[in-house]
Design a binder for these strands. Structure first.
Lengths: 153, 153
DNA sequence: CCGATAAACTTGAATCAGTCAAGTTTACGA
DNA sequence: TCGTAAACTTGACTGATTCAAGTTTATCGG
């Protein structure tokens, strides 16, 4: 059900990138499965592609990252996650326990928290807002069976 | 020049923690060297203490973290950093190139960006704001000798 | 359509921060 | 001053990510 405005192949070509089965599969799959880890992506597209190395997934994601076709989220202590939604300054809600991520629109309105009052000589290009907490599933799991987090989303 | 309000030993005892040479050294050193990595702390206090294992530094920092005596910052792609300033909702400016960190007071005023508009069933306990950019030193280094980041602060 | 070639992919080793585990030492209350 | 749990030492291990060398393939010029 990926309702792409532009076909994936065109998006790649528009940036001068080669169109490969791996790239197509990753981008298509990611559109339907936001906040996926490399592991998730690999599992997800291996079926559709027959097989693909994990390194290729890293390569594809890195290329798409640089081409601004995907965005990366790296929550401390959890593997990186990827999503197709880029450039709209939205933030993320991260579960401390399982690493699950949800999107959150900027609570203070677009770009309001993007400029620090004092930049210490830095050239700032991004403001990242991350809300940390425990998701519903993990809270339930914790009360039912204390001490066992059912980890990994 | 650590101008502690309360002596370090007392701060530890106040939380029911044992006062050890390692803990004292770490906390004292950290007061004068904010945003240090485990490596930095280890190097810094090894001299003052004669010797200490890196694992002990991890242990001390973990204990102090749980006792709220230090705060941890984990910038994506860089080793964790520690500081004594806690509980005042300040944010951080991180250099993409060398990982150097500077403090920034909340641009939108205390706690204004702490509550996401939709919590997706999460129990949110922290909002983390991280500004990413390139610090002055790395910008200079990049223009002088392109392609060589003089990394690691 | 066909080959050349640089980009993309495969495989497997390496790195790096951090964690685990078993044994020894030490702070501190009795 | 003694016993004990907490803290420290040493060294192995993990898991995500990166590096590197060799092979395959998309695309472009002919």
């Amino acid at each position: 059900m990926s309702r792409e405005v532009t076909p994936i192949a065109d998006q790649l070509r528009a940036r001068g990138m080669r169109v490969t089965a791996a790239r197509h599969a990753v981008l298509e799959w990611l559109a339907d499965n936001p906040h996926a880890t490399v592991e998730h992506v690999h599992d997800g597209i291996s079926q559709r592609l027959g097989s693909i190395s994990k390194q290729a997934v890293y390569d594809v994601l890195k290329a798409c990252l640089e081409a601004d076709l995907v965005q990366q989220i790296k929550p401390a202590g959890h593997p990186a996650r990827f999503e197709r939604r880029t450039g709209d300054n939205h933030h993320h809600l991260v579960c401390r326990s399982c690493g699950r991520i949800e999107d959150v629109d900027c609570a203070v309105g677009a770009r309001s928290c993007l400029n620090p009052d004092h930049d210490h000589g830095f050239e700032v290009d991004e403001a990242e807002v991350m809300y940390w907490g425990i998701c519903g599933a993990c809270r339930t799991a914790a009360t039912n069976a204390p001490g066992d987090d059912h980890s990994r989303q």
